[in-house]
Design a protein around this nucleic acid. Structure first.
Lengths: 344, 344
DNA sequence: GTTAGCACTCGCACATAAAGAGTGCTAACA
DNA sequence: TGTTAGCACTCTTTATGTGCGAGTGCTAAC
């Protein structure tokens, strides 16, 4: 059976109506509310065809039609236009994103918040992966006899540090040598290179320094690198789930929270996703628990180096055009916002 | 009407049964399952008295009795014993608390997690208030011509820092002088003193240093202090709410999440609460949205200086004895755990 | 003071009925 | 040949009625 122009229009009308109301839509509704100039009977015939083609389903004999995942996929791929955000919306988003942000992670967290509020869905955002960040500078700052602070500065200016307790007192001179050596050995290396590579030990001539390096500094160094590499997952708008009719059933709501609680898993899944705007619909999500959800993600870049993701998770019946636009606008603006506020 | 020994026993039986089953309890149930040696009819008479005294309520004429808030209050104040945790439970808690913790905040977050799992309720924990923390050491570390890292180390060893962009290049000498001065002026002061006090400017002799100090260092200093003072609220076990019959109604569940979402408010409320173990039952919580919940909080101390809170929120029908014991055990162990793992 | 007995009250689960929305088919029409 | 009106049929939803069970409150006897 061929897809005709008219079938497409009817399908679009059905999707649009169902997205709005969450109720199966009947032929009369389409005929009344969408000016296609054809009678309910004709629409019924077309609907019957569309069902045979796999674009519609029938909850039961005597109810309206519901778009299938195949229909959403067609809609997203072929029929959906970008919904340009209004100037007001853009301003609102920008204002809230730019407001008083001092840390990149902070900005990302806020992006999740804004995203969830605008879409009324559950939003998430991943702080940037820093594998490709390069080390710039390493220092050991004596605080007291047995305490030094190990500080690592990355090329993008991110600072991280740990207080390290020493076995034995260290002279400032020793610390200076160690720090200088580490900076020399590691600056220009990426964080993951530094973490994976064998620790470079080239002060064998100084037994004292060497012992301390081995026992105290190296563990602290690795710990700090790991901290810097950590990717945080922020989620927001969890309670939005309750305003979605699909989840008015307590069991389903519970199921949703069960998914959402497995943060570690989500984090991994997100990291695996391809770059750019990705929409997965229902069963396209490997996870069986997500079979009734769609996920929209987009990738942001800061400085062309740091890379992270954000997006929303909601019922397959979501406003893909709107959501896509907001997600895109946010990612486009994240690096911009961050430069303006001049965070570290 | 007087409270008698027997009435107390019956009330305790009713509370205990209702806490377990969430169903109104009838006279037969009490007579069968609790060996009080009296018949249902007698129990009915006593129940009737207890109702008149305000300890029981009656959902409708032909159903069992439900304890009132007044009953829970009596129970908590007079009848409840501490439920000693089993050695196994203690070990389990300790193991999970001590496991691989490197940061205090981390430990607190985990405490919330453990607490929610053990009680099957929603748990929260507040990272310690650091108002009383004293500054130990301040340093300015040059990274490149226009970038320095401002580092603050507190007496308990917590390190915090910000990268500061400079208007103009600064000599290492200038930075050294500034850092030395700041350490001299602020070490021994508490964080909040440092934040509130006027900035001390005593290098008027050096116009160059002074200008940089004013324009770049001071804002970074204040920002860092504020960061250090920030109190984080961790919540865990949100989805536990779904296994509580009281919240099988979607509207109530939604209401619960509405409360939980107002993190800022919760944080403030928690900070205001008195020290020690505090139990508020139903309407005793000012917040109308919490009128059907009870909140149990306890205070922990680290090093006798840092102070924070943790606790649970659940239905008025909760196992107060168990919850109290767990909460108490956790707070007692937090500082201990932290010393053992040798965190910063 | 305690207890057995019994009438009475509700709430709940279940069945049944009526209403409403929507389809699918048939036959007529342009 | 495509479109439409008409109508029987299906299935869900909502309202209504009924019986059952749990539990009380009262009375009278112990």
């Amino acid at each position: 059976m061929d897809m005709t122009e008219r079938k497409l229009k009817i399908l679009q009308a059905i999707i649009s109506d169902f997205v709005r109301t969450a109720e199966p839509v009947g032929s009369r509704t389409i005929s009344r509310n969408y000016e296609l100039g054809i009678s309910p009977a004709t629409i019924r015939n077309e609907m019957s065809d569309l069902e045979e083609m796999g674009y519609l389903t029938h909850p039961h004999t005597s109810s309206g039609r519901v778009p299938s995942e195949k229909a959403y996929r067609l809609y997203v791929n072929e029929m959906m236009g970008r919904k340009e955000l209004s100037a007001d919306q853009k301003e609102e988003i920008a204002r809230r994103l730019y407001d008083n942000v001092t840390e990149l992670d902070n900005l990302i967290e806020r992006a999740a918040h804004v995203l969830s509020e605008i879409t009324s869905l559950t939003a998430f955002a991943l702080s940037p992966a820093k594998e490709m960040e390069k080390l710039r500078y390493i220092d050991l700052i004596p605080v007291d006899e047995r305490t030094v602070v190990l500080m690592i500065v990355s090329e993008s200016g991110k600072v991280s540090n740990t207080a390290v307790q020493l076995d034995r007192p260290a002279s400032e001179e020793t610390l200076r040598i160690l720090a200088k050596n580490m900076t020399y050995n590691y600056s220009g290396k990426t964080l993951s290179e530094a973490l994976r590579s064998d620790i470079i030990r080239n002060f064998r001539e100084d037994a004292e320094a060497m012992a301390m390096f081995e026992n105290n500094i190296v563990p602290g160094f690795l710990r700090t690198l790991e901290n810097m590499l950590n990717v945080n997952l922020y989620m927001d708008g969890l309670s939005n789930i309750f305003s979605i009719p699909e989840y008015s059933d307590i069991e389903k709501a519970k199921g949703f929270f069960d998914i959402i609680n497995r943060k570690e898993e989500i984090r991994k899944k997100l990291i695996e996703r391809d770059d750019g705007i990705i929409i997965t619909i229902g069963g396209e999500n490997q996870d069986a628990d997500l079979a009734e959800c769609s996920v929209v993600t987009a990738t942001y870049h800061v400085d062309g180096k740091l890379v992270g993701k954000l997006g929303v998770i909601g019922p397959t019946r979501m406003k893909y055009d709107e959501v896509t636009s907001v997600v895109e606008y946010l990612t486009d603006n994240i690096s911009k916002a961050f430069m303006i506020t001049g965070g570290d």
